[in-house]
Amino acid sequence: ASRQHISMDVLNSLISLTTFFVKIESKNSPLLLKQLFVHIFFNPAIWIYCSVDVQMRLYTYLAIEFVAYSEIYHLLQPISEIIQTLHTIKYFYWVVDPSHRSGFKPKGSDGNRPTREQIIEMRRYMLLYLKQLVISSSGTQEEELQAILNYLHTVHEDDNLVDVLDTTVNLMSEYPRAMVPAFDRRQGLKTVFKLLASSSEITRLQALKLLGFFLQRSTVKYVQHLFIQGCIET
C-alpha cells in the first residue's frame, strides 16, 4: 500500500482501536495493543512521508493521550521503546544532516520531509513521551539513561542533540533519586565532558547544568574522588 493511503482517517481509526482494546477486558487485548504500538505507532518508516498533519497527530497522541493510559505503556518494555524513539529521532527526524559530522547515513531524506520547524516540534512531542517512558520504567533507570547518553555521545550536531540534552537535564533535575545514581554508574561525566567541547554556548550551558545537578546530589568526598581520578587518568 502507498503511504498516501495512511490518511488522518486511518490514523484516527488506529487510535480508536487502542481505546477499544484498553476498555474491553479480553485476554488478547494486551498482545494486540503491544503489536499495534511496537509495529505501527513506533515504526517511523511508516510515518515519515505521510502528511505533516498525520505525523503531528500521531506524535501529539503519543505525547498526550498515550501517556495517560498507564494500561498501555506498562504493557510495553520501556527500554525497547526508548531505544526505538531515540533511533527515530536520530535517523529519521534529524534537524540537520548528520552524515558529515556524526558519520552515519540518515534515513527519510528521499521524499518530502517536514520542514525544519515541523521536525523540531515533532521531536518535542517524541521527547515528552520518551520522558514518561523513562520515569514509568521499574528498576534503576540505568539502561534507559544509558540509551540517552549513547545518543548524546554519538551525535555531534548541536541542532540534533540540544533538545535531547534538555530532556536529560530535566530528568536529572526532577527525578534525582533515580537518575543521579544511574548517571554515576553509567559514567555520565564522560558525556558531559564531550558536550563541554561543543562550539555551541547553549550546548555547553546545558552540559554544565547536567554536571551541576549531578554534583549537587554528590558528597564532597565523592566529588573530590572523581576529580582526583580524572586528573590521574588525564
Score class of each variant (00 low, 15 high):
114 P>V: 00
114 P>F: 07
114 P>L: 00
114 P>W: 07
114 P>M: 08
115 T>C: 06
117 E>V: 10
117 E>K: 15
118 Q>N: 11
118 Q>G: 08
119 I>Q: 07
119 I>L: 08
120 I>V: 14
120 I>H: 07
122 M>Y: 03
122 M>L: 13
123 R>G: 03
125 Y>L: 07
125 Y>H: 11
127 L>V: 00
128 L>S: 15
129 Y>E: 07
129 Y>Q: 07
129 Y>V: 05
130 L>F: 02
130 L>D: 04
131 K>M: 13
131 K>T: 11
131 K>L: 03
132 Q>R: 11
133 L>D: 02
133 L>A: 00
135 I>D: 00
136 S>L: 02
136 S>C: 11
137 S>V: 06
139 G>M: 07
139 G>F: 02
139 G>S: 09
140 T>L: 10
142 E>Y: 06
142 E>A: 01
142 E>P: 08
142 E>V: 00
143 E>K: 10
143 E>I: 13
144 E>Y: 02
144 E>T: 04
145 L>R: 01
146 Q>N: 10
147 A>S: 11
148 I>A: 03
148 I>W: 00
149 L>G: 00
149 L>K: 06
151 Y>V: 04
151 Y>G: 03
152 L>D: 04
152 L>V: 04
155 V>W: 02
155 V>T: 13
156 H>Q: 12
157 E>W: 01
157 E>C: 03
159 D>G: 00
160 N>A: 00
161 L>I: 08
161 L>Y: 03
161 L>F: 01
163 D>K: 03
164 V>E: 02
164 V>S: 06
164 V>P: 10
165 L>W: 04
166 D>S: 12
166 D>H: 09
166 D>N: 11
167 T>R: 09
167 T>L: 14
167 T>M: 15
168 T>S: 11
168 T>L: 10
168 T>Y: 08
169 V>E: 02
171 L>V: 06
172 M>D: 03
176 P>K: 03
178 A>K: 15
178 A>D: 13
180 V>N: 01
181 P>A: 05
182 A>V: 02
182 A>P: 03
189 L>F: 14
191 T>L: 09
191 T>G: 05
192 V>F: 01
192 V>W: 02
193 F>R: 13
196 L>D: 06
199 S>A: 15
199 S>P: 14
200 S>P: 08
200 S>N: 10
200 S>K: 02
200 S>E: 07
200 S>H: 04
201 E>H: 02
201 E>D: 11
205 L>P: 08
205 L>D: 07
206 Q>P: 11
207 A>R: 06
207 A>Q: 06
208 L>F: 06
208 L>M: 09
209 K>G: 11
209 K>S: 15
210 L>A: 08
212 G>Q: 08
213 F>Y: 15
213 F>R: 12
214 F>G: 09
214 F>L: 14
215 L>S: 08
216 Q>K: 15
216 Q>V: 12
217 R>D: 12
217 R>K: 13
217 R>M: 09
218 S>K: 14
218 S>A: 12
220 V>D: 15
221 K>C: 15
222 Y>T: 15
224 Q>D: 14
224 Q>H: 14
224 Q>E: 14
